[in-house]
């Protein structure tokens, strides 16, 4: 029977010898890499974006801003798989924690993209906002904190969340240097069962599930953060007088 045969193939790919644990382990590693990479990437990206913004507005932080430019150019101009190999085989060649190396690679890589997204967010805030804050005697830092950053964050959430979702899937490249992430598991299982069908399907479904859950969460977050005054009926906290 055709279906019986299919079931056997599925059982071999998922149930026998507790192979499902391998998918879960891979999934865990993928999520761990993506999470650490997101934290590193967002930190680097926001710092560099702010550096470039402040440099353009005030002329300060010239050197740091140049460093940001060089960093963004190099990272965006080279394939991430090469960046991974350089970090894995050369920079951290003595370190056997592949997951951390993968996370660092993607953090550094994502930072360049986040920097551009965040910079666009900062640029989208009207220049008059900074001038108004400064004209009242507040410092650049105070104005950034109270006025510019909240508006910039609101403006760049959708592309930023896109970047996070892309990152989850992109990390599958770490399998290239032998790190056991979800993308690497189907090949491992196939090498024992000589059957690719279900291992690939299962891995794909798991990625899809993660992305769908993530999309949902980020959508809710985005709604909450990006609420503008108009969405609240123009009244703070929805209080109508």
């Amino acid at each position: 029977m055709f279906f019986e045969n299919l079931w056997k193939r599925f059982a071999r790919a998922f149930i026998e010898q507790n192979r499902w644990q391998m998918y879960l382990e891979g999934l865990g590693n993928t999520l761990l890499i993506a999470l650490i990479a997101t934290v590193i990437g967002t930190t680097i990206g926001v710092i560099f974006a702010m550096t470039k913004y402040i440099n353009r507005k005030t002329g300060k932080l010239k050197i740091l801003s140049k460093i940001a430019d060089v960093y963004i150019t190099i990272i965006r101009g080279t394939p991430v798989v090469l960046q991974l190999m350089i970090l894995y085989f050369i920079v951290f060649s003595g370190w056997d924690n592949g997951i951390m190396i993968g996370a660092i690679t993607f953090g550094i890589n994502s930072g360049a993209y986040v920097a551009e997204i965040a910079r666009a967010g900062f640029e989208s805030v009207d220049d008059g906002q900074m001038e108004a804050g400064r004209s009242l005697g507040m410092s650049t830092a105070q104005t950034m904190w109270h006025i510019i950053i909240p508006q910039a964050v609101r403006n760049c959430l959708p592309p930023l969340f896109n970047e996070f979702i892309t990152l989850v899937k992109e990390t599958a490249i770490v399998g290239y240097v032998g790190i056991m992430d979800l993308g690497k598991i189907p090949g491992l299982i196939q090498s024992r069962t000589f059957d690719y069908l279900f291992p690939l399907l299962i891995a794909a479904i798991l990625y899809l599930a993660v992305v769908m859950v993530l999309t949902k969460i980020l959508h809710i977050l985005e709604k909450r953060f990006s609420k503008t005054d108009r969405d609240r009926g123009g009244v703070k906290n929805g209080k109508h007088k």
Binding site: S135, G137, I147
Partner: peptide
């Protein structure tokens, strides 16, 4: 900054803080 605190400025384009309510605009500085 110290001297700007004693010089109020009013702009052609108002430049009210978009992310703050009216009273927060006045209280922030």
């Amino acid at each position: 900054n110290l001297h700007r605190q004693h010089m109020g400025m009013v702009f052609q384009q108002f430049n009210l803080f978009n992310n703050k309510s009216v009273i927060e605009n006045i209280m922030l500085a």
